[in-house]
């Protein structure tokens, strides 16, 4: 990790140095310095001025005018002179020899190669993998789309049959539901009929029971009233004698009971 960071930092530094060198060379070119160094050239148009045109009315002495003319002529000559030879190896002359620039450039290329080989390779490999994956994904999606398209086309082709099948299934389901509802209703009606019959029977039974009870109660009440009216002292004494006779009999359980219960 650290090595990778150092490698990237070195690469960045080298790119910065290269940029700076290019900028410096561009600055040198703008000042008119040619390859291999040498003094800047003067433009011929700027110096090739006739001595007569350059004489000004304020100049007194002819010597000065002559000197200036000679100087101008010399500069014009220098300006029209052919360029210097390329400085390949001479380190003594003004400017950097081309061989040094080439060596410098080679070191720079070697540095770029050394430090940038792996990251670039990794980046390229990653990029290649990503592109491959995207291509695969795109192919897969295309296949799926084609498959779906085929499926829908097939469905469209069989749409009529499918509609017919669905309609028949719905009709069958409706008929089955109708039969189920009818069956349930019949069962419910049967059950209600049975319950009603049972309730009627129970009511009849209860009525019969109540009627019988009321009849018995009325009959007993009437008998009691009749007895109360008809019983005489002689009947009282006769019943008392019967009671005494019953007590004298060995089995008298029929008229014996314990207090709080029967026996």
């Amino acid at each position: 990790m650290n090595r990778r960071v150092a490698r990237v930092a070195m690469l960045v530094a080298m790119v910065a140095v290269t940029g700076w060198s290019v900028w410096a060379m561009a600055q040198g070119g703008m000042q008119g310095r040619g390859p291999g160094g040498g003094p800047p050239r003067r433009e011929a148009a700027a110096v090739a001025v006739p001595p007569a045109d350059r004489k000004e009315p304020g100049k007194e002495s002819a010597d000065e005018a002559r000197k200036e003319a000679m100087e101008a002529a010399r500069e014009a000559e220098e300006a029209n002179a052919p360029p210097d030879d390329i400085n390949w190896t001479d380190f003594g002359r003004e400017g950097t020899p081309y061989i040094a620039l080439c060596v410098n450039f080679g070191i720079l290329i070697a540095g770029f190669y050394y430090f940038g080989k792996k990251p670039v390779a990794v980046a390229l490999k990653a990029r290649r993998d990503t592109i491959a994956k995207e291509i695969e994904e795109a192919q897969r999606m295309r296949k799926e789309a084609e498959k779906r398209a085929k499926h829908y086309q097939a469905k469209l082709a069989h749409l009529e049959d499918e509609v017919k099948t669905t309609r028949e299934a719905l009709v069958r389901a409706g008929e089955a539901e109708r039969e189920r509802i009818v069956t349930e209703a019949e069962a419910k009606a049967e059950r209600m009929h049975r319950d009603a019959q049972f309730m009627v029977e129970q009511e009849l039974k209860q009525l019969r029971h109540d009627l019988q009870r009321d009849t018995v109660e009325a009959a007993i009440a009437a008998a009691e009233e009749l007895l109360k009216k008809r019983v005489t002292q002689a009947d009282q004494e006769r019943l008392a004698e019967d009671y005494l006779a019953d007590l004298a009999r060995p089995g008298m359980q029929s008229m014996t009971k314990s207090v709080g219960g029967t026996s």
Binding site: I220, V231, D242, M255
Partner: peptide, 26 residues
Amino acid sequence: LVAGVVTRIGDRILDGSLRTRLTSLR
């Protein structure tokens, strides 16, 4: 009692009344 005799002796009742007979009949 309407008629008859009822004797209670200790915890026993010897019931020979007509009212009890009517109740039994009912």
